[in-house]
Each structure stands twice: as structure tokens, then as C-alpha cells.
């Protein structure tokens, strides 16, 4: 960890201004990801702006029947919120499938959304990584890749987005509200929050320096049955190998997204339209163009089988 300065922001506007004003400054809320990365000098902020106490923690109904989740609402608060449990079950299930009770008590909605990847080579700071050092190369290619992404990757990065919550938000068509350094708000569709690596794996999201997520808003509940199935090598405290989030309607239609298979929650609307044709059809379309390694090719049949399980459970 490199020495850094620290301030508690007095307001959202002040927080945004403070980070925008100083190159290398970062927001800190729960810190469950940032602090770990600072210890190994993958993150080396010169200045931290603490936003934990800002009034961005509420969870409120929206006029159109949706739900607005403050950026600082903790994972625990969101997962245990009565409306989330009742109307957005996939979100509650995804959140409690992640991390541990202690981490969920600290981790915030916005922080979780932008958690960084879990590629083992991202953490191996003496080896090349295009996310850490743009242009240095990707040590994961040709290395140990079992956990890494199979689709949406590029020759420069095969890191997977390891999140659970984000996969649920993706099928709930959430929108992310931000405030920019000039004070203007904007909304970003959840599908645009996580960028594919392409030629620039180091650019992971479209937020400008100093731009702060203030809320995540869910539209009206989608109805149907809600499912989140997370497959992993042990029953808890592990990132997914593959996860499936689904909202399924009685007529056989629905929405589905896959976690831990791609650099972002992997939802392909054209594939989802094939749900009435069964899991194989969905997965074949959703994983078109996949470039798995020998070690992680199993993720594609596993995704199909996990979706089949979810569909079987929905029928039961």
C-alpha cells in the first residue's frame, strides 16, 4: 500500500469535485475490494474520498412502481429489503450467493457493481497484465485459465466478471444513475456499465474520472419466477464457475443471463428469445463466437446444464 491522503466528503457534489480535481483520487465506500488491491499496489490512489456517510443509502419506491436503490445501500440491506425479496427475488438470491455475511454487511451496491476481476494473473503483479499495465500482455493466455471467461474476451484479456449481483441487475434491466464532475446527472443502462476488453482491457466502465454512481434503479417488477443458481467448487465463499440468473414466465418466455463466463454479465437478448426451445438453443446462441481454453471449455456445457436445471426447477 502506498501512502495516500484521505478526506471525508461533505456532500455528493463535494465528493465528485474532490475526485475530479485530483488525478489518481478514488472514492471509497465499503472498501472490500479497493483496500485489498491497494495492499498489493494494484490500486495506488494518491487520495481517497470517503463517501460512506453520504445520503445515498436509501431504498425507495419509484413513482412507476420500480425501486431506487441508493449507491451506498449495503448488499445485506438490499438482499433483505421486503420489496426486493417480494418483487425482485433474483436480485436477493444473487446477492446472498456472493461473498460472506461480513463482506455483504460492508459492500455497497455501487462498489459491488464495479468490483474488479478475479483473474489470478491480475493479482500476480510480477507478470504482465493488460488491465494493470496496458500493453504489457496477458499472462493468463497459456496459463491457468479454468475460472476465466469463455466469451466476449479479446486476445488481450480473458478475465471474467465474477459478480453475482450484477448478473441479476442485468436481467432486471436496471439503470445506473450517476453524477458527473460538472454536476450533471446521467443514466446508464446496466448493459452498458461493463465494457468488453477489446483492445483496451484497462477501460472497464464508461464512467469519467470523478463520476459517481448515486443509485441503481429497477423498473417495474418483471413478474414470473425468479432464479439464481450459482455453480462453484465449494458451497460457499467462492466465486462462481458459472451462474445463471433467470426470470421465467408461465408461457415459457423469460430473461436469462450468465455470470462468470464473460467480462460482463452475459445476457444475449436474441438467445433469451429461444427459451421456449430449451437450454441448448439458448446457450448455442448466447455463446456464439466463444473462444474458450482447453481448461474452461466446460463452462459452456455447464451453462446449458445449469440453465436446464433452472428450467426444470421452474416447472416443478
Amino acid at each position: 500500500m502506498r501512502p495516500f491522503t484521505y478526506e471525508r466528503a461533505a456532500s455528493t457534489a463535494a465528493a465528485v469535485a474532490a475526485v475530479a480535481a485530483r488525478p489518481g483520487a478514488r472514492f471509497i465506500a465499503g472498501g472490500t475490494n479497493l483496500l485489498d488491491l491497494m495492499k498489493v499496489q494494484i490500486e495506488t490512489p494518491a487520495h481517497l474520498v470517503d463517501i460512506r456517510h453520504l445520503p445515498l443509502r436509501g431504498i425507495e419506491d419509484t413513482p412507476d412502481g420500480g425501486l431506487r436503490i441508493g449507491a451506498l445501500a449495503t448488499n445485506t440491506e438490499v438482499a433483505s429489503h421486503p420489496r426486493v425479496k417480494r418483487d425482485y427475488g433474483v436480485l436477493a438470491r444473487a446477492i446472498v450467493a456472493g461473498a460472506t455475511g461480513q463482506l455483504r454487511n460492508k459492500a455497497t451496491t455501487a462498489g459491488n457493481l464495479l468490483q474488479r476481476n478475479r483473474c489470478p494473473y491480475f493479482y500476480e503483479t510480477t507478470l504482465p497484465c493488460n488491465k494493470r499495465q496496458p500493453g504489457s500482455g496477458c499472462a493468463a493466455l497459456g496459463g491457468v485459465t479454468r475460472s476465466l471467461a469463455v466469451v466476449g474476451t479479446s486476445p488481450h484479456c480473458i478475465a471474467q466478471n465474477p459478480g453475482d449481483m450484477a448478473v441479476a441487475l442485468r436481467i432486471l434491466d436496471a439503470t445506473v444513475e450517476t453524477v458527473r464532475p460538472d454536476g450533471s446527472p446521467r443514466t446508464i443502462a446496466i448493459g452498458d456499465v461493463h465494457l468488453l476488453p477489446g483492445d483496451n482491457p484497462e477501460i472497464e466502465h464508461p464512467l469519467a474520472p470523478g463520476e459517481l454512481i448515486t443509485a441503481v434503479t429497477l423498473p417495474r417488477p418483471p413478474g414470473g419466477t425468479h432464479h439464481y443458481h450459482k455453480v462453484r467448487d465449494r458451497a460457499s465463499y467462492a466465486f462462481a464457475i458459472v451462474s445463471v440468473a433467470a426470470v421465467l414466465q408461465k408461457d415459457g418466455t423469460g430473461r436469462v443471463a450468465f455470470g462468470s463466463v464473460a467480462p460482463r454479465p452475459w445476457r444475449v437478448e436474441a438467445a433469451e428469445a429461444l427459451l421456449p426451445h430449451g437450454p441448448a438453443a439458448v446457450v448455442t446462441t448466447a455463446f456464439q463466437g466463444a473462444t474458450p481454453t482447453a481448461e474452461n471449455a466446460f463452462k459452456i456445457p455447464l451453462a446449458a446444464r445449469t440453465l436446464a436445471l433452472v428450467l426444470a426447477e421452474a416447472r416443478a
Partner: peptide, 20 residues
């Protein structure tokens, strides 16, 4: 290629947890 164990922490090297 490099001759080392890449999963060299308790996140990468999984042992059973209570839920198992």
C-alpha cells in the same frame, strides 16, 4: 511456464467451508 502455484492464497486454494 513459470513453475509456481498460481492459486497461492485461501481464495484461490479452496478448502471446505462450513456449508460443505
Amino acid at each position: 511456464r513459470h513453475g509456481f502455484f498460481i492459486n497461492h492464497d485461501l481464495g484461490g486454494y479452496e478448502v471446505p467451508v462450513h456449508a460443505d
